[in-house]
Design a protein around this nucleic acid. Structure first.
Lengths: 333, 333
DNA sequence: ACCAGTTGATAAAAGCTTTTAGCAAAAAAT
DNA sequence: ATTTTTTGCTAAAAGCTTTTATCAACTGGT
């Protein structure tokens, strides 16, 4: 009936079992101070035997390092946040650091609540991530006593910031088309007030020449359809290739082209942006696209955070991380 | 140069500023013990003024409740995990409880590492979530001293478990079709060894009659195409409606029907499963589908965890939470 | 005026670890 | 043989909070 809870072993248990003082046990386990090798091994063996694991709370209270960080995101959907979070964890887990994930839904009250809980728990730092780089956080993170890193979000110039290199990604896409001999390249993309859209469009113009203008619209399949309709209606030569600002747009474009009897990539080549697998692998043909390497982005943010919490210098300001090209079949085999 | 870090205020600071002892300050702030109302107000006012917030680590060390829990997931993609996590947080944040998110990628080593970090940090409980309900966790969570709750995953019979009610969801879908007058209903779904697929198929057979057999296949758009091809080739009457096991399959089905000149919903109605917005809103026409209410699922798991950590009784075993029907246009306006 | 009970506060212990300072014994140096 | 140094270990403090036990002062009853 009265099942006594299996109390966790403390360093006191180790000390007693090894017949030494608590301090010696601590020294032996942490390999600091002056300890007889024999004693050290004995203590370690016994600790291992009885399954001792130090209480991180007590340790943190003293060392002022909690080995936990907070990730604050405004993404409810998860497509961007989870790969990034996985990357962050990957960088941290080997160092015993865990990450609190706080989904704020972009609600300032919720964000404040989460932030307070994090600070109370003495997190060593905070990583802020967003669904869109050029969006201000729902709370002020600039006056905290702990380091803040921004991932897929832009913070103050003093904070380390990691975002995908949109220009480089666009270059990858357009250059791929050029390399394969496509010339008249059109760019169909999302909302013009997204910084990412601007950067990609700019690079596109530099590389592809600006004979054809950039078509800004929504970030949806529907806009992909609509854009193709516009292009066909205004007549003139068809483009040889289309660089789309997102995989969703690309999917709309591909479907619209097929509806009109045009073959991809024979008549028109298409390249997307995002490598959102559920879309990119299921278009007909599968979509060649740009991957923003979100996991790597998260990993880098995690590593930066690790350095910061150790007091090591970390270069402030924006670091743009390279995207990669994922070749499928929409630009020819 | 030597910027002194703004040390966090402790209860000691409050006590000193209020001219009382630490114990009195603690009593006043927590409203326990015997305290003169005047003193209590004074202490609270001063605490507020100097911005005192108790150190959760120290508190937890004593009370044995860390006000943090761990979420272990094997989902790297985030589609299921993030909405659920958001739901969990939503249930917990008002109680000052935060959640560590651990993405294991289904790697036992990684899972073990995460688990140890969580236990060291004295989490009050663990929620395990998966991308598929009938999959065993990469680590053994049955012998822990803390409560474990399963969400979108099946644990031991003694553990509270929350999963979507697949049968009810399927009923919702099929009944919707029947209510709208569709009779010959076909079911195209995913892999037969998924428990979810079996449950949905069973319900479908009960409701729609089993004249037409269930078509099991992959969980992909491609299979949706392929399945339509199979149906058309084998000839006979076309179904009046198709109940698809996932939105991805539904999308393939809709596209395949259109390719063959069949109109949705005029010639064939289609209903999906998942309410994965990027798909369901972009099919032509937009897809009527079943939403598994993942956020609510997470919220329920969070609430159960909350009760467990407080020692309140929580019903063990599987709780199937209702899905909802999201009507768009693929079954008529 | 004395005793019992109440009130409002406090000192100290507890929770678990790390770290500082110190002590006794052994080793090395004079 | 005595002093200095080194070695191996330990007691105690510190980190911040909550809680238990205690204490002094006051209230009210006889």
């Amino acid at each position: 009936m009265s099942e006594e809870p299996p109390r966790r072993r403390t360093i006191r248990d180790v000390a007693k079992a090894a017949g030494v003082s608590i301090s010696t046990a601590s020294n032996a386990l942490n390999g600091i101070g002056r300890t007889n090798p024999e004693t050290r091994e004995k203590v370690r063996r016994i600790a291992e035997q009885i399954g001792f694991r130090p209480n991180a709370l007590a340790r943190s209270l003293l060392t002022k390092r909690s080995h936990s960080i907070g990730i604050i995101t405004n993404d409810t959907y998860g497509r961007l946040t989870l790969p990034m979070t996985a990357g962050v964890s990957e960088a941290l887990v080997d160092h015993g650091v865990s990450a609190f994930l706080c989904a704020t839904n972009n609600d300032p009250r919720l964000a404040q609540l989460h932030l307070e809980a994090l600070l109370d728990k003495q997190v060593d730092g905070i990583i802020f991530t967003a669904t869109r780089a050029d969006l201000t956080p729902p709370i002020d993170l600039t006056r905290l006593a702990i380091p803040v890193v921004y991932a897929f979000a832009i913070g103050p110039p003093t904070a380390p910031t990691f975002i995908p290199d949109d220009a480089q990604g666009a270059r990858l896409a357009v250059q791929h088309l050029l390399d394969r001999g496509y010339r008249r390249i059109l760019h169909i993309t999302g909302l013009e007030d997204y910084l990412a859209a601007q950067l990609r469009a700019e690079t596109y113009r530099d590389l592809a020449g600006a004979e054809l203008d950039v078509l800004f619209g929504e970030w949806t399949e529907e806009w992909g359809h609509e854009a193709v309709r516009l292009v066909m209606e205004r007549g003139g030569d068809l483009p040889e290739a289309i660089f789309c600002g997102s995989d969703e747009i690309a999917r709309g474009v591909i479907d619209a082209l097929r509806d009109r009897g045009l073959k991809v990539p024979e008549d028109v080549a298409v390249v997307g942006f995002d490598n959102w697998r559920v879309i990119a692998t299921q278009t007909r043909p599968p979509l060649t696209t740009i991957d923003m390497e979100l996991k790597e982005l998260g990993r880098r943010a995690g590593l930066a955070m690790l350095d910061l919490t150790r007091g090591l210098p970390v270069e402030p300001g924006i670091t743009r991380l390279p995207c990669s090209l994922v070749v499928r079949r929409s630009c020819g085999a």
